[in-house]
Design a protein around this nucleic acid. Structure first.
Lengths: 135, 135
DNA sequence: ACAAAAAGGACTGATTTAGTCTGACATTAA
DNA sequence: TTAATGTCAGACTAAATCAGTCCTTTTTGT
């Protein structure tokens, strides 16, 4: 279906939220959740993912929260999406762990190489689109 | 996950198969299924979808089968994928039937407009890649 | 100490996907 | 006529994925 997951959507929204108010300190998961009507626990996890991927930084405790680790013009959509999506390939056999099972005794390879080029172009779209462009 | 469905993969493979032997008459669903180790019933349905979308033509009866309706340089990947995929949008609210429910009281719209441009670029990749390029 | 906040694991329920099976029907070459 | 083939539709299962919730722990400012 070539659809982004909710997690990816929420990650983009959360990143946008933080970008818009970055200067004024931390944003809490609760704050983002309420502003955008996103389930709290989900956005909290997404934010944790962003921290793990060094897109955001976090501060625990009272007055803590999340903040972008970089400027919005230095964060691409692919950074954000990859932080929450495990798979970001149009076909399975392009995953890193495509050892053999899928592609070997199936003749998937008949289209693998040409699709790799398509994959490259899609990656390019998300790589070249920066967070600052969706503000 | 931004992944193509198996149906889309099979449609591409089937189209490729037909393109490669187009001159030599019809290809049967059975033949394609066995050549590529694709479940027969699935590839049969996929082929029916291709016929419905005027990408392939079919002939019933003995010696019947399927054949491409156009030259491979006149069929884009998006034609093939759209023939089998119901949704081909990265977010739900870009679907034609995105009446209201999703996007209205959720603040999804915060990212809808910018993502529409991303969607356009992805469509472009699939529109501009022709079947002949994956042979 | 307490409250606010992140961190993270376990779990459930819904949805989607892939695939199978069945059966009835239409067409056509031999 | 008969066998091979396509057409069409529905029911069904099993597995995977997704979205969401719940609960507990850790950290930290006041």
């Amino acid at each position: 279906m070539l659809k982004l997951s909710k997690k990816a959507e929420y990650a983009l929204m959360a990143a946008k939220y933080m970008a818009l108010k970055n200067h004024s300190g931390f944003s809490t998961a609760k704050e983002i959740s309420e502003s955008y009507q996103i389930p709290y626990q989900l956005v909290a996890k997404v934010l944790q993912n962003l921290v793990k991927s060094d897109i955001a930084v976090s501060a625990k405790g009272v007055n803590g929260g999340f903040s972008l680790a970089r400027k919005a013009n230095n964060i691409s959509l692919i950074d954000i999406i990859r932080a929450v999506e495990t798979n970001f390939k149009i076909v399975d056999c392009m995953q890193l762990n495509s050892s053999s099972a899928d592609c070997e005794h199936f003749d998937c390879c008949k289209i693998k190489d040409p699709l790799a080029e398509v994959q490259r172009k899609i990656d390019k779209v998300f790589t070249e689109t920066l967070l600052v462009q969706i503000l």
